[in-house]
Amino acid sequence: MTCRTCGVPVLTQFASPDLVGAIVEDGLDPAEDPRWADSGAVSPAEYARWSGHLCGMTCLRMALGPGAPSLFALRDHALKYDAYTDADGVIKGLVYAPFARYVSEVHGLDAVVHRHLSPAGILDLLDEGRRVMASVHFGIRHPEQPAPGRGGHLVLLTSRTADGAGVHFHNPSGTTATTRAADLPSAVFERFFAGRGVSLPGGAQAG
């Protein structure tokens, strides 16, 4: 599915969009996703272990547009650049600096790490035609509720909202169509935002 307002693909980090809610909110084992192989994983077990950590790779897939490599192909390249760490059975990610180097060297994109980023700064980047992978709390899919925290999950901001005062973003763990491609006022977005991210050029195409 491609977003009608921004032209960017709307993708989830799980292979079956209709199962995202069951996986992230109801405890369904991702290994039971019947479309797991579409992710590029080698087995249901690998898919189940990694899929919950690949919000960043999903954002990159969306930014690359149609023809982007599979989710796990992107993960494999990112691992070679140490953009994820997998030690003692614990996956930690996404490490921004090596991720930016990977995106630059493999995909030819000018990725910029923003360690201190304000909502106003996001709007400036969007106005420059860039897209922003922003660190937010996954609870952003329920913006009507108090924010449980900030950071830990990545979404891709693609544009301002129609009124110019908010942000349009794609959420890899959105559980419905309206939370996968969402509009929020900047003040609401800020409640979930950790103040950091990575910007990518707009109009990127998979190489």
Rank of each mutant, 00 (worst) to 15 (best):
P9M: 04
F14E: 00
S16V: 05
S16M: 09
P17V: 11
D18G: 11
L19T: 06
A22P: 00
A22C: 01
I23A: 03
E25T: 12
D26Y: 09
G27W: 08
A31D: 03
P34M: 09
P34H: 09
R35G: 07
A37F: 05
D38Y: 06
D38P: 01
S39K: 05
S43V: 11
E46D: 13
E46G: 06
Y47I: 11
R49H: 11
S51C: 14
C55P: 01
C55G: 02
G56M: 12
A63T: 04
A63L: 12
G67Q: 10
L74A: 07
L74K: 04
R75A: 11
L79G: 00
K80E: 15
A83T: 06
D86N: 13
D88H: 14
V90H: 11
I91K: 08
G93K: 02
G93R: 02
L94M: 14
Y96L: 12
A97M: 06
A97C: 02
R101M: 13
G108H: 10
A111I: 10
A111P: 03
V113W: 10
H116R: 15
H116V: 14
P119C: 07
A120L: 13
L123W: 01
L123C: 07
L126V: 14
V132A: 08
H142F: 15
E144F: 07
E144G: 15
Q145P: 00
P148M: 11
R150G: 04
H153S: 08
L154H: 03
L156P: 00
T161G: 09
N171Q: 04
S173L: 05
G174P: 01
T176F: 10
L184R: 02
A187S: 15
V188L: 14
F192L: 06
G197N: 05
G197V: 03
P201L: 09
P201R: 03
G202P: 05
G203L: 10
G203M: 09
